[in-house]
Write a protein that binds this DNA or RNA. Structure first.
Lengths: 223, 223
DNA sequence: CGCATCTTTGAATCTGGTCAAGGACGGTGG
DNA sequence: CCACCGTCCTTGACCAGATTCAAAGATGCG
């Protein structure tokens, strides 16, 4: 486990755009690390020694039941912080959905950084509040929305986070979408087809792209 | 809105057991406020000027869809902090489930307190990490568990939080349970009856109490 | 070009929801 | 003290949305 502080790194102290700590470059590995698609960032149940910032790419955090059922609680895109844990172990696992570059922070220094760096403390607190809000919206989706509403919500959300253009390039598979929305891949597929037949979206042959043809209709479908 | 600091309160600076800030008693209304059952603590969409600590009683936070569907994201018991928001408005509403006493903190001072009081910052960060973990578990429940598994999880969780004894006194109605677990009241009722018939629990005539007869079986049912 | 993987589609099944009615508890007032 | 009433809870019959099982169709990588 790399327990060295960034002080030992030649790059420490550089003003990296988007870095949490700019002035005081202790406590994170300044050189972002590359991860490949499918790679495990950390496993459910492993020691929570670090937390992470997405510099580029996409990461999913998920939990598994013994029989293999999976729930993806969130997809993390550029700028997102993830991997915070109240306990000593990771309660969720994290895997790379799309080649990613991550900045790795030492959890052991979280407390010190909270105490010493007010700017950092505020960014961490803000990131956590956002995580809580997204979790709350997602519980509403999982607890109370129909399949059609879930897909509509998902498309609008991804559109907002990825591009705002009508053309979406989803980084994840149907199976990831299903496990995020609490559906099966068959239902995800059928619902997308249904939206295409209504003319609300378009599904090009490259199945990871989706064109939003009618955002108004999509918002109407999203409870 | 009471915007005065605790410095203006005669009680300021008292070492109140369980208070977030003991040494530096700025920024919270030192005298806990009483709320009655059914009372609204804050509404969904209202300005997020405060956050709260449960001194006694039970509070639920929930979201509504336009057509009335409701999702209760959490029940807050003694010691819990709630009402944090990343944005200016409350994205969830909070209502009292069981007569409660709440300590009210000024949100406007959150940032200052984070900067000035490291102990406070850590308690807030810890509370948020717990909220995130509970939200993650709850997403797993809502996305992937059957009605029976949801009820088993719920009973074990409430038992852990309320008493650890085999006798549970639930503070909330079937309707609250249903809206928390993403089920209908009929399914909650049927599932409890089913567990009673199996001898796993007992349902005394006072329908808010439940006796856990067989925790092992309950844990086996909880995926 | 061919194979492995992902996606779509169809048919049957099932879990949980909906609609409807009856029952029990507890508070209120006579 | 007891009868009444409102609310909450339970139960039953039927229904619907989503899952399961099965198979065919695409896509894209090697």
């Amino acid at each position: 486990m790399p327990m060295q502080t960034a002080l030992q790194y030649p790059h420490a102290g550089h003003a990296v755009p988007g870095a949490i700590v700019q002035k005081r470059a202790i406590a994170f590995i300044d050189v972002p690390t590359r991860f490949k698609k499918g790679q495990t960032v950390f496993s459910e149940g492993s020691a929570a020694l670090h937390f992470y910032e997405v510099v580029s790419g996409t990461v999913r955090t998920s939990q598994l039941l013994k029989d293999g059922r999976r729930q993806i609680d969130a997809f993390h895109l550029k700028g997102d912080l993830f991997g915070f844990e109240a306990s000593a172990l990771h309660r969720v696992g994290a895997e790379v959905v799309e080649d990613a570059t991550l900045r790795i922070y030492q959890r052991s220094q979280l407390e010190r950084m909270l105490a010493e760096d007010a700017e950092f403390a505020q960014r961490v607190v803000a990131a956590m509040m956002h995580a809580i809000e997204r979790a709350q919206s997602h519980m509403l989706l999982l607890g109370r929305k129909s399949a059609l509403e879930r897909i509509a919500t998902f498309l609008l959300d991804m559109s907002g986070r990825l591009s705002e253009m009508s053309h979406l390039d989803l980084p994840m598979s149907r199976s990831d979408i299903a496990d995020h929305l609490g559906l099966t891949i068959e239902t995800v597929s059928r619902t997308l087809t249904q939206l295409e037949r209504k003319g609300v979206i378009e599904l090009p042959s490259h199945r990871r792209s989706i064109v939003l043809r009618d955002r108004i209709a999509l918002r109407r479908l999203d409870a």
